[in-house]
Design a protein around this nucleic acid. Structure first.
Lengths: 194, 194
DNA sequence: CGTGGAGTTGAATACGATCAACACCGGTGG
DNA sequence: CCACCGGTGTTGATCGTATTCAACTCCACG
């Protein structure tokens, strides 16, 4: 599993096998079964996960007991709760596997060590953060501006390969609509030929 | 104006007056009148603004001509469009002043120079990015989970000092509701004693 | 003063939510 | 191997929140 992570890193920054070895002690490989909660809401867990295989979702549960998907993370995505990871405050959401998942757990120290060892590392991480922000701004705009059908069309355009891996109920909760509404949206779209 | 920016920086990182002098050439002071557009949607402008005095909003206009507020930026906020600033793509939104505003325009180069000159600078910027992400995650969760009244209550709790500086129409567009709906929400809240 | 934008209020409408029943698998155990 | 079960998605009927459209008030500003 660590090799997958190493190859991923080498795709974006130059990092030698020796350098990776030095960082390796900050990494823990985990094999997690489907439907396992990794991080509980309102707890503190400052680790980051890198998904090698599988699928993860982050979600909240409101006072009515309803779930709301914050994001999904398939292969090669980084997952953490900023509240816990960076600010050592209780996490804002649950993190859970939707499929059997292989992941690399990355400690807080990894980032510090990597930044010192590899000059490219920190700027690259910064780029990922910027990208994440513009992505979220787009999502906020969509939630403000678009109605159910448009949001769903945007979703299947953005994640064509995830549509069939995520239960519709959860897609609905990502879009901010009920499963019933999503079902109806899909029905209308089907008559139009998807 | 540059002094305000300098004092702000010195509150968070240690930076000498000489160091600031070296960076100063990458800063441009601007005095902008109320209701002036700084960045057009779908254009490229890779500068960042630091608000000294005044108030800025970022917003999109959808195909129906409706405006949607992405964020507001009062004193001591950083404003840029990630799409333009970091990825050199057309901006996702308009940026406009809501009040007469004094700001410092910061070039892309400033970041590179500052990172070299001041070791603390880059990590501090990273922290700001992380903070921004968790803030946006909270907002997404609110848009998914809460209805009009709750969103408004959250807004006045989060920005007590902005509520009276921003026209209600724009607050409504930030909350994803119509001005009429916001007016009705406020009416209900008034009967409850705010 | 007048004028126009911002906010309020009312009535009708629409979109999505809710509640409930049912169909359709996929897995489990007899 | 089949029957049963539970979860997921679908469909229908009704309800509710927020939208739309329109008229009106109230200031701020020229």
């Amino acid at each position: 599993m660590k090799d997958i992570f190493k190859e991923y890193l080498q795709k974006y920054i130059s990092i030698t096998d020796e350098q990776f070895e030095q960082l390796s002690s900050e990494l823990t490989v985990k094999h997690i079964k489907k439907n396992t909660v990794l991080i509980e809401q309102d707890t503190i867990d400052d680790s980051t996960f890198f998904v090698c295989h599988g699928l993860i979702r982050a979600y909240t549960i409101d006072h009515q007991g309803k779930e709301h998907a914050i994001f999904f993370a398939p292969e090669h995505w980084w997952v953490n709760d900023k509240n816990s990871f960076y600010f050592c405050e209780p996490s804002l959401f649950y993190v859970e596997t939707l499929e059997d998942t292989d992941l690399v757990q990355i400690s807080r120290k990894f980032y510090d060590k990597a930044a010192i060892l590899i000059p490219e590392f920190a700027p690259w991480q910064t780029k990922i953060l910027h990208n994440s922000i513009r992505f979220m701004q787009k999502r906020i705009n969509l939630l403000l501006a678009a109605q159910a059908e448009t949001r769903y069309l945007d979703f299947i355009k953005m994640y064509p390969n995830l549509v069939h891996r995520i239960p519709q109920t959860m897609i609905a909760s990502y879009l901010g609509i009920t499963p019933e509404s999503l079902s109806r949206v899909r029905k209308v779209l089907a008559t139009k030929g998807i």
